[in-house]
Design a protein around this nucleic acid. Structure first.
Lengths: 223, 223
DNA sequence: GCGAATTAGTCACTTTATGCGACTAAAGTC
DNA sequence: GACTTTAGTCGCATAAAGTGACTAATTCGC
């Protein structure tokens, strides 16, 4: 590997790390080193010779001590002024972690999405985009599965979908659609949650299947 | 407007302008100023004080003399080396124009997507992302309508969808779904295309309607 | 002028997907 | 052991999508 001396780059790499905390989504923030009461999304000034994905992975690693199971770039943001760095542009990534296994390092903390700290407009836009991306890609990528532990009950899975979609789902329909998708596999374990019948545990194990070939959809309203 | 002296920024703004040319998608390229046989996507080095969207609009304007009807950022690209500029990172936008009204300025030309000139890996990735974005957002945004002239026949619309999806659609199903969507409106004009019954003209005129509230979809295969 | 060819547009029937209430099952609570 | 609670399934009703066959309006060949 060649060692090029890093030079000041005019863009930052920011990461929106999300988890499902209780009944709400939560985002990970880093405490500001100078103003102790200010928080911001974890970020770093990019270094030449590092890919965007690698930079984002490193930011996440520093915050959590581990890499998120799912990570995806959500775009470049340059319009809102006043980023914690002085960068003209920030490239944002979104990362998902199950809450059970995610313990932030010192100086980092989860904030529930309904109760965020004051932020720069640019970082606020990133979080807005991340939540919209989650909703929009829920049916195209295993978002919900990445927010759950490796094994889970079908009720937990349904509750995760309900949380992410902000709407109730019908149990029988949910399970029928899930069956048809060949995405999960039951394992020979049950979990008893105090009262009620114990639930069987499942894991995410997508199987080959024909891609459902539907006709056209016109699912947009405007414009 | 404040006049700040521009400084070298380490990112470029590139635009993937697309149109439907005959039976294929086509992308707009700019002739390289030094090597006359080389082509590249239109781009510019960003200037401080200009938003990303504004920079992209300006690049498109310079290439076409007009702004595309539809434009959307498709991400930041930093991994493939050797961009025409020396930028570490390039922010790419996608723009759509109807071919009928799109005449490139001198030094620019359309290349059919199946027959592209040699490109830097990074710009190749942008085009790849743009085509995937088109397919993925076809049912969520009026992509097909933006590639057609203001008035069109339903057969033309269906052919556009067939081109973008690379598959045949059934006429009756297509029209039934379109009716249900309240996206088009017939106008009192007919077009005769030589042989066959004349077709009524329509225009894109989305009407208010309830958002179709379906249950969950598990439409992904892997991962 | 007239039948064949061509493109537009619609209909009716079948198949598939989804919504939804009601049911059975297995545990804890009192 | 009756009641509550959560898990899991069944079956019917309704909605959406796939499909071939039909009618309609025009040009073309002769």
């Amino acid at each position: 590997m060649r060692d090029r001396s890093p030079r000041t780059a005019s863009y930052s790499v920011d990461v929106v790390l999300m988890t499902a905390m209780g009944n709400e989504l939560a985002v990970l923030f880093a405490r500001n080193s100078t103003e102790r009461e200010r928080w911001s999304l974890p970020w770093r000034i990019s270094q030449s010779g590092e890919t965007l994905d690698a930079a984002a992975a490193r930011v996440a690693q520093e915050a959590l001590g581990e890499s998120p199971i799912w990570m995806e770039q959500i775009g470049a943001f340059g319009d809102g002024k006043r980023h914690p760095s002085d960068a003209d542009v920030s490239v944002a990534h979104m990362g998902l972690v199950p809450h059970e296994t995610a313990s932030p390092r010192a100086g980092y903390a989860w904030f529930s999405i309904g109760d965020l700290p004051p932020l720069s407009p640019r970082q606020r836009a990133m979080i807005e985009t991340a939540t919209r991306t989650i909703q929009g890609r829920l049916d195209q990528a295993p978002i919900a599965f990445r927010l759950l532990p490796a094994t889970f009950t079908l009720s937990e899975l349904q509750q995760m979908y309900e949380l992410l979609l902000s709407k109730r789902l019908h149990k029988a329909s949910f399970r029928r659609a899930l069956q048809a998708s060949w995405l999960v596999e039951s394992i020979d374990e049950w979990r008893s949650e105090g009262r009620g019948r114990p639930a069987q545990l499942f894991r995410y194990a997508p199987k080959k299947r024909r891609r459902p070939q539907r006709g056209v959809r016109f699912d947009f309203l405007y414009p």
